[in-house]
Amino acid sequence: MVQKSRNGGVYPGPSGEKKLKVGFVGLDPGAPDSTRDGALLIAGSEAPKRGSILSKPRAGGAGAGKPPKRNAFYRKLQNFLYNVLERPRGWAFIYHAYVFLLVFSCLVLSVFSTIKEYEKSSEGALYILEIVTIVVFGVEYFVRIWAAGCCCRYRGWRGRLKFARKPFCVIDIMVLIASIAVLAAGSQGNVFATSALRSLRFLQILRMIRMDRRGGTWKLLGSVVYAHSKELVTAWYIGFLCLILASFLVYLAEKGENDHFDTYADALWWGLITLTTIGYGDKYPQTWNGRLLAATFTLIGVSFFALPAGILGSGFALKVQEQHRQKHFEKRRNPAAGLIQSAWRFYATNLSRTDLHSTWQYYERTVTVPMYSSQTQTYGASRLIPPLNQLELLRNLKSKSGLAFRKDPPPEPSPSKGSPCRGPLCGCCPGRSSQKVSLKDRVFSSPRGVAAKGKGSPQAQTVRRSPSADQSLEDSPSKVPKSWSFGDRSRARQAFRIKGAASRQNSEEASL
């Protein structure tokens, strides 16, 4: 019999049943779409005989028809080659250093092939080196495509196609095609072959870009420019304004007297070369007005044109410092986490200390709560409330009815002989401070409620009492009544008793 458990639990079988086999339907690529829901599959020993999904071999995947050992070796080799080519560490840098020397040698020989004295001697060596480079780069490109299958997102032919569309893979295939075209054109020995050789060798310069396949330098440059984009835009904007204004004023001053400034384009060329401190010297002002304007705008514009270099330099320094700090933080993070875990385990398992309490023990206690009866409008029989619902239920009951529930009420002091009981919340009678006064009792026990209740009776009109401690106690149990005489010590004692009862009640409510 096959059962599914969608909550991750395992159904224990009877003692008479045989052992169960467990598997996940959602992990089987050969299962139909209706059953690939991630549910837990529990099947008996007879299920494989019936041809269940556990008995079927995997229909898809890279190692579907391969033995386990061969499949493990296949995956291990794939991961190894992918890490060597895409994430070089340790001795893997030897291969990348060899590729760099190969590319650099091709670049140097290409430069010498353009010089007439070394053209014949360098062409033969360059031809052999180009063949070696094409073979190495071609094999490396196909190995990269194959090894990318170790990543989940690059599996299958669609994943390989996605990997081949990456920018550096596109550069690799462009350089490979250009190198093959250069060799094919150079072997023909005609004029067209020579011109094609010179034009296609430009694409071989892109080999130097592939040295940084992970794009660390470009990411660093982009992060620095993005972090200081506002400062760079401000400096370039002001420098551009200085360039336009200086070129226009010098053009007006030199026009008609200097042949170097016949057009405004000549003035812009002079301004750009001057403000960037290049100074070719092919154009320069000759009149005193033009020289004065050139000197003034040079002092202003050079500072703004040189400002981005300082901004980028400081940004690079701060970014490198931040990377070093992050690297040290990552080195200290795992030991710190292990130290915290060890300290907590020692703290939680220390049996010699009796003052340690688990944080979840508070929620494991069961509280007896009286249940409210809507018919009699009273609190009758009580029941046990689950631990997770205790706090919310108690808050709702307290807010609606005004009752305070507590588990172990402390012993109440008995009323003394000299001070009789003053009210239901005086704190001297046991069992009276455990409940709050309802809204109805407060209204009818207050002086205003009594006056409103007995407004029509003649006794209420004739008998008038001065405010005393009895009425103030019933009005607000948490307030201290004001004494009408300064020498009345009994009223002071009563006030301290009320304060103590109120503080105890607040602490009990907070504990609930």
Rank of each mutant, 00 (worst) to 15 (best):
R210H: 15
R210P: 15
G301S: 01
A337V: 03
M1T: 04
R201H: 00
N190H: 12
A309V: 09
S358F: 04
R213W: 14
R333W: 07
K283E: 02
L351V: 07
N350I: 07
T276N: 01
H228Q: 01
L356R: 09
G9D: 02
M208V: 14
T114I: 08
F304S: 11
R210C: 01
D259N: 10
P386S: 03
A337G: 03
R144Q: 00
R213Q: 14
T359A: 13
S342L: 12
F261I: 02
M1K: 04
Q204R: 12
W269L: 10
N258S: 04
A253T: 13
L221R: 04
A185T: 10
G159V: 06
G271V: 09
V250L: 05
E231Q: 08
T378I: 05
Y280C: 06
L85R: 04
L107F: 07
L312S: 01
I273M: 07
L197P: 15
S314P: 06
A193V: 14
A196V: 14
T263I: 12
H96N: 03
S352P: 01
G159R: 06
P411L: 02
R291S: 04
N79K: 12
D259G: 08
H260P: 07
H228Y: 10
E254D: 02
D266G: 08
F261C: 02
K230M: 12
Y284C: 01
V320I: 11
R214Q: 03
A62V: 05
A193D: 00
D212G: 14
I311N: 06
T276I: 08
K255R: 09
D355V: 01
L243F: 04
A306V: 03
R325G: 13
D266E: 12
L339R: 05
V225I: 10
L206P: 05
E322G: 05
R353G: 06
D355E: 03
H96P: 15
A306T: 00
C242G: 09
A185G: 12
T217P: 15
A265T: 04
N350H: 08
Y154D: 01
R214P: 15
G159E: 12
A294G: 06
H260Y: 09
T296P: 13
T217I: 11
G418V: 09
S55C: 02
I205V: 14
P420L: 04
A306P: 00
A147P: 06
L203P: 15
S199R: 02
W344R: 11
L292P: 10
T349I: 07
T234P: 08
T277S: 06
P335A: 11
K230Q: 11
K162R: 02
T287N: 10
I273N: 03
P430S: 08
L268F: 01
Y284D: 07
L318V: 00
V250G: 06
R353H: 08
R207W: 15
L356V: 09
E130K: 13
Q188K: 02
L388F: 07
D212E: 15
L268P: 03
D172G: 11
S247P: 05
I209T: 14
K219N: 13
A265V: 05
F104S: 09
A265P: 06
L293P: 09
K283R: 02
V225F: 12
L243V: 13
L81P: 05
N190S: 13
F329S: 09
G189V: 10
N258Y: 07
V250A: 04
G8S: 01
W360C: 07
A294V: 11
A253S: 12
P285L: 04
S122L: 11
G315R: 10
V182M: 13
T114A: 11
A267T: 14
L307P: 05
I340M: 10
R333Q: 05
Y237C: 12
N350K: 08
L200P: 15
M1V: 03
A178V: 14
Y362C: 09
L351F: 03
R198Q: 00
S113F: 15
G313E: 00
C169F: 01
T263A: 11
Y127C: 14
V175L: 00
A317T: 00
Q204H: 10
L101H: 05
M211V: 02
F248S: 13
M211R: 14
S195P: 00
E119G: 13
I238L: 08
A343S: 10
R214W: 07
D259Y: 08
T194I: 15
T217N: 13
L339Q: 06
G239R: 00
